[in-house]
């Protein structure tokens, strides 16, 4: 048992932190008050520098890939990272990224699809991929702070992969848990910065115990989420992955409401980035059936089928 990052992971995350400190990752209000900004330039630089390949390297592994997903998700710009860092190295073939993922042919718009070059489809028995040709995807207007899109799935040219769908589901649960925990952490830091400064009744909002206690609980739960997802990233057990995703999906809504509560009217504006995290969290908390589904999956893994 050793719960700090190893030397290689520390170096990897330090370099990642330097890249994410770039002004490209900072918040700018999007054109026409759009709900998201895709960090295309930063995405390209992360790819050029091999950051999305960490999982395949022995000393970095899936723990570093999950930690990277958690870090990237904290930024107000959206960058497709979870599927690229945790699924792509295990597909057994090249898959041009960014990636989009659909499970069990779930209907509706798919996140990251408008920027994606590959769509991965996971069903009970098979994992298939299709490269997306230009013009095949229609962007869908949505509240979610992701590029959302649809595609005629039947018209795509699918190839079946020689990889167990159960394993991909576990990796995807870990990736989603990492992304959601990172989104919540990004929002927390933003709210903390605000309540440290914002003065009311002659003192900072963050000095009121009613505010402190709720933010402390939120911070404890986000840190617990991080530990649970990193453990799942190492073990890649179905039990750990379901637990990690179920836990963070369960806390996401309450934590998100708290953040808006303490940000007050400023959090309602599109000039402040809080909405970016809020609406990514809104989508992620319902992903793959949401907390109930993950909890039931965990119960079956731990205590057997009903």
């Amino acid at each position: 048992m050793r719960l700090d990052y190893n030397e290689d992971q520390t170096t990897f995350l330090t370099f990642l932190g330097q890249m994410l400190a770039s002004s490209e990752a900072e918040f700018r209000a999007a054109e026409d008050w759009g709900r998201y900004e895709y960090g295309a330039a930063l995405d390209a630089r992360l790819e050029e520098n091999g950051f999305f390949d960490a999982a395949a390297e022995e000393e970095l592994g899936t723990v570093a890939a999950a930690a990277m997903t958690y870090e990237v998700a904290q930024k107000p710009v959206a960058i497709e990272c979870g599927a690229s860092s945790l699924l792509r190295p295990f597909l057994g073939r090249e898959a041009p990224r960014p990636l989009a993922v659909v499970l069990d042919d779930a209907p509706g718009a798919i996140r990251y699809l408008p920027v994606a070059r590959t769509l991965i489809s996971v069903s009970d028995k098979t994992v298939r991929v299709a490269e997306l040709t230009e013009g095949s995807v229609s962007e869908v207007e949505s509240l979610y702070a992701y590029p959302m899109g649809t595609v005629d799935r039947k018209a795509l040219s699918w190839s079946e992969l020689d990889v167990a769908s159960d394993r991909v589901r576990v990796l995807w649960r870990v990736a989603t848990a990492a992304e959601l925990a990172g989104v919540l952490k990004g929002a927390l830091e933003s709210v903390l910065a605000y309540v440290r400064e914002r003065q009311q009744f002659g003192r900072p909002l963050g000095s009121f115990q009613a505010v402190q206690h709720r933010l402390s609980i939120n911070a404890i739960e986000i840190e617990a989420s991080r530990m649970l997802l990193l453990k799942a990233a190492q073990s890649l057990s179905a039990e750990d992955a379901a637990l990690a995703l179920g836990y963070v999906q369960k806390i996401a809504s309450r934590v998100g409401y708290d953040f808006h509560q303490f940000m007050g009217a400023m959090g309602l504006t599109l000039e402040h980035p809080l909405h970016r995290w809020t609406y990514r969290a809104r989508l992620l908390r319902a992903d793959q059936g949401g907390s109930s589904s993950a909890s039931l999956a965990y119960a079956s893994e731990r205590w057997g089928a009903p």
Binding site: R2, L3, A224, L243, A294, S295, L296, Y298, A299
Partner: peptide, 28 residues
């Protein structure tokens, strides 16, 4: 019932890992 059991288990595992962090710090 199953989902509630899982939520209680998740809280126990969350607490376990946060306690382990304390022990890990001591060990190092």
């Amino acid at each position: 019932v199953r989902a509630r059991a899982a939520e209680a288990a998740a809280a126990c595992e969350a607490a376990r890992l946060l306690v382990y962090r304390v022990v890990d710090g001591r060990a190092r």
